[in-house]
Amino acid sequence: MSTVGLYVPGHSPLHRTPAGAKLLALLLAGIGLVVWADHRVAAGALAAALVLYPAVGLPLRRAWSALRALWPFLLAIGLFQVLFADWQTALRLCAQLAALVLLANLVTLTTRVREMLDLFERLVRPLRHLGANPDRIALVLALTIRSIPMAAAAWEAAREGYRARGLSGRPHLLVVPVIVQLLRMADATGEALVARGIDEDTRH
């Protein structure tokens, strides 16, 4: 089962870095890749992102899990740029996208959901003066982050069942199992929220 976006306990410096600092570093990395639009810089960033995984105690298969669903898009982007631009542009765009995905995944793998939730609450606290509820906004953001690995897990489970039954050449058969799995996960999440009294709070 895919483990994209799920927190992995550890004691590396990155695990101990505050969530805000990691998100700021991710933002600066993205800005840097856009400002220094060079295929060598992008390739270096991708290599650095890959090195970071074992450096913080994570196997490289975690990096592959993050890129597994992305590779068809990278292939399409690369082919398009090679045909209508040049190979340097193709390499730069693909490496930029892959590096940012790997870095973003690394942030979620080394950051507890509670830390993210606390950070979001602090960031949206000024909106309280406009009538917004910071707790609710932070909860929505946290659930959004959580839904990404949930969707990846549903797809992986459906694909494993697809292979186990010896099916091939009919990828459309994956659609219904994925939808059913996502509905089950959503139902379980809703029950957990109700059990914590969040649903009742929403009505008042």
Rank of each mutant, 00 (worst) to 15 (best):
Leu130Glu: 10
Asn105Glu: 10
Leu106His: 01
Ala164Gly: 07
Ala192Lys: 06
Leu123Ser: 04
Phe120Asn: 01
Leu103Met: 08
His172Phe: 15
Ala98Asp: 09
Leu182Gln: 13
Ala195Met: 12
Val101Ala: 12
Pro134Ser: 11
Val180Ile: 11
Leu102Glu: 02
Val140Glu: 14
Ile179Asn: 05
Ala192Ser: 13
Glu121Arg: 15
Arg196Phe: 05
Pro134Arg: 08
Leu109Ser: 00
Glu156Asp: 13
His172Met: 14
Ala164Tyr: 09
Pro171Ile: 10
Glu115Met: 02
Thr110Trp: 01
Leu167Glu: 12
Val101Thr: 06
Glu200Asp: 13
Ala151Arg: 10
Ile179Trp: 10
Val178Asn: 01
Met185His: 05
Leu141Trp: 15
Val140Cys: 09
Met116Ser: 02
Val180Gln: 00
Glu156Lys: 11
Phe120Val: 13
Leu109Tyr: 02
Gly190Trp: 13
Ser147Tyr: 05
Leu193Asn: 01
Asp118Gly: 14
Asn105Cys: 09
Arg196Val: 03
Gly197Trp: 09
Ala188Cys: 07
Val113Asp: 09
Leu123Gln: 03
Leu119Trp: 03
Met116Cys: 03
Leu117Pro: 00
Leu102Asn: 04
Asp135Ala: 15
Gly166Asn: 09
Ala142His: 04
Thr202Lys: 13
Asp135Ile: 01
Leu193Trp: 01
Arg184Asp: 09
Gly166Leu: 15
Gly197Glu: 06
Leu103Ala: 11
Arg146Trp: 04
Gly197Val: 12
Ala192Val: 09
Ala154Glu: 00
Asp187Ser: 13
Leu106Asp: 04
Leu102Arg: 04
Gly166Ala: 10
Ile137Gln: 02
Ala188Arg: 14
Ala152Ile: 02
Glu160Ile: 03
Val175Gln: 07
Leu193Ser: 06
Arg112Ser: 05
Leu193Ile: 07
Leu173His: 07
Glu191Arg: 15
Arg114Tyr: 06
Gly169Met: 11
Arg136Lys: 09
Asp199Asn: 13
Ala154Gly: 04
Asn133Ala: 12
Arg170Leu: 08
Thr202Arg: 13
Ala152Ser: 10
His129Val: 07
Leu183Ala: 10
Arg125Gly: 02
Gln181Cys: 00
Ala152Asp: 04
Pro126Met: 13
Ala164Thr: 15
Ala192Cys: 05
Leu139Gln: 05
Leu183Thr: 08
Val175Ala: 06
Leu173Ala: 08
Arg136Val: 06
Arg170Asn: 09
Arg125Ile: 02
Ile179Pro: 02
Glu160His: 08
Ile137Cys: 03
Ile148Gly: 05
Leu182Asp: 03
Arg128His: 07
Asp118Lys: 06
Leu139Pro: 00
Ala158Arg: 00
Gly131Glu: 04
Glu115Ala: 14
Ala99Asp: 02
Pro134Gly: 02
Gly166His: 08
Leu100Ala: 02
Trp155Tyr: 06
Arg163Lys: 10
Ala138Gln: 00
Asn133Gly: 01
Ala132His: 15
Arg136Pro: 00
Ile198Phe: 13
Ala151Pro: 01
Arg146Asp: 14
Leu97Val: 14
Leu173Arg: 06
Asp187Gly: 09
Ser168Trp: 10
Thr189Asn: 14
Ala98His: 02
Thr144Leu: 15
Pro177Gly: 04
Gly169Ser: 11
Arg170Val: 14
Ile137Met: 11
